[in-house]
């Protein structure tokens, strides 16, 4: 990166660190921070959407839809997210490829499962094996987003359900008394009101979502934990220009600080939103 980095062996102190911290490998670490941030930014609204759909379905007057919503919430909530991450990504990937295989290669005669192998025709492969590496990475990222959204959507559904039920019954009855239809009560009274009750739970979920991002590596995305572990491990002079001992503790300290700063910022913002929402509500925490 810097010109004086040409001969790392001669460096000392700050200039050594300046060069060390700007190696291509460290750039991968910094890049992975962006990966984590974009995952969060894409997953959060997607999960909320899943959650809202799940909660609405679970409240639906139409029984099959209600059961679907309830089963979704129950199953996903019942299984550790880490098990989902280990298992679901492969299952999703194979599921997508199976569907594409059915659509694109109708006259394929061989079985899809041959022993332990999962074989679909070349055109159905996702991504196509001719695709450049970045397509593979984006696809892996996309699978990660879906897995995260499914898991956190179920939890969001539960929070939203609780919030919908926490809206004072009297308000809904009043709305009905004014002649609003079921749909109108839902969209005009229930949904705007529930956010106040949902916010503490959703804030908690947001923090948990942040907390879950280190599990990204299990999904095949090279995340900050992967790079911290890789960079922090002791390095032998034979394989690197910057040999050092076991520095994982320091790298993980860095990650700890990163996450703490991130959460601190999130909480400040969420607290502001909460104050705005609870303005004028008759509860202890509200500003008059």
């Amino acid at each position: 990166m810097f010109e004086f980095c040409a001969d790392p062996a001669s460096l000392e102190g700050i200039s050594w660190f300046a060069c060390y911290l700007t190696t291509g490998k460290h750039m991968s670490l910094y890049w992975s921070i962006l990966t984590v941030l974009s995952l969060l930014l894409i997953t959060a609204p997607t999960a909320l959407l899943f959650g809202f759909a799940g909660a609405s379905a679970a409240r639906s007057g139409f029984a099959p839809l209600r059961w679907l919503g309830q089963i979704y919430v129950a199953i996903v909530r019942g299984v550790p997210d880490i098990a989902f991450f280990l298992f679901f990504v492969i299952a999703l990937d194979q599921g997508f490829e199976y569907l594409r295989h059915q659509a694109l290669c109708p006259d394929w005669s061989e079985p899809i499962r041959q022993g332990n192998d999962f074989i679909v025709c070349k055109a159905a492969k996702l991504p196509l094996s001719t695709a450049p590496q970045w397509v593979h990475e984006v696809y892996g990222f996309f699978l990660a987003v879906i897995t995260f959204a499914i898991v956190f959507g179920a939890f969001a559904a539960n929070v939203l359900l609780g919030a919908m039920r926490a809206v004072p019954q009297a308000q809904l009855e009043t709305a009905q008394a004014y002649g609003m239809s079921r749909r109108q009560v839902f969209w005009r009274i229930l949904v705007p009101q529930m956010w106040l009750y949902a916010l503490p739970g959703l804030s908690n979920l947001w923090v948990i979502l942040i907390k879950a991002t280190p599990l990204l590596f299990l999904l095949g995305v090279e995340d900050i934990v992967y790079w911290a572990r890789e960079l922090g491990g002791s390095k032998n002079a034979r394989f690197t220009d910057y040999p050092h001992g076991d520095w994982r503790l320091w790298y993980f300290l860095g990650l700890l600080v990163f996450y703490l700063a991130f959460t601190y910022l999130s909480e400040r913002i969420l607290a502001k939103v909460n104050r705005r929402l609870s303005r004028g509500q008759g509860i202890v925490g509200a500003t008059p």
């Binding site: 991002t213 280190p214 994982r248 503790l249 959460t263």
Partner: peptide, 18 residues
């Protein structure tokens, strides 16, 4: 509360172990 809620459990385990 902030220290334990603000950081991932995964990293807490690692850190605690060290």
């Amino acid at each position: 509360i902030f220290l334990f809620r603000g950081s991932p459990l995964f990293i807490q385990f690692f850190f605690a172990y060290f």
